[in-house]
Nucleic acid binder design. Sequence first.
DNA 1: CTACATGCCTGTGCGC
DNA 2: TGCGCACAGGCATGTA
Length: 318
Amino acid sequence: MPELPEVEVVRRGLVDWVVGRRIEHVEVHDSRSVRRQVGGPEAFLAATSSMVITSAARRGKFLWLTLAPETASDAGNDSGAEPRFALMAHLGMSGQMLVEDAEQPWERHLKVRFVLSERDGAPAELRFIDQRIFGGMWISELTPTPDHGPGGVGDQAHSIPRAASHIGRDVLDPMTNAQALRKQWRNKRTGIKNALMDQSVISGVGNIYADEALWRVRRHYDTPVSRLSLREIGELLEALRAVMNSALDAGGTSFDSLYVNVNGASGYFDRSLNAYGRAGEPCPRCEREGKPGLIVREPWGGRSSYRCSWCQRRPRGL
DNA sequence: CTACATGCCTGTGCGC
DNA sequence: TGCGCACAGGCATGTA
């Protein structure tokens, strides 16, 4: 469920609450949540304990905290050591990062617990909670970004963790542009939604926001990307950014308690969705324009797609 | 290159 | 009441 806006809400919470603090103590409560870790949970504990969190960054749905060893100068000023490792987190379907007081009872699906250095008014712990265990945490080496500009949203060091180097530029990254997408897509026969969900070209788009952006540009999900002109790709990118920025303003999309921000609050963008999850309802745009469009749900690649039966019809020849 | 299948997980809601 | 099953679904990996 967490897509780009939800992960970005979490990242911003981490900037406010955990950046600048030291990891005093770590507990792995379920080793399955550190599955990608070379060396297993023991290596994870060794790499994170006593490190200072220097930033919170993100590319697509991959989230990370940069870690640096504490130096003597940290006590008096802000010139710490350069971070060389990232504490990666992917929320998967049900992952949560909560910043809480130590007195809070342990959650049923608590997987990793970080006790942080004291800071006035700030809760003592960062907790990773994950019901379905599609997400996880692990350590990855930071490397220079191969192209110019920041490696991720929130990154100041032009670096990218190796674990996210196969992920394409983020929808909200200013360096993402229609020309680059056109170059990637012009010779591809794959459909537009397939292309959006492929995180290696443009990242952060999942099932919900793909359907919402396609609704906004009145496109059928199977339209081959090679058919899109530069102008049409520009409009699609603008639609993606608009829907994601609106979702950010609403604190993200929550259908249930599985997605929350670092303080445990749900987002309310689900009320603003036009297509996703609205099978059988009139298309809001068609209703305004006096047209008969209904939102339909269709099986698509092993899951569901939602589109308007009137303004997102299958292109001719498909 | 591209597409499609599979494993990883658990809670919820349905039909019987 | 309880059991089995479909569904939610991103990503890594393997196969055709």
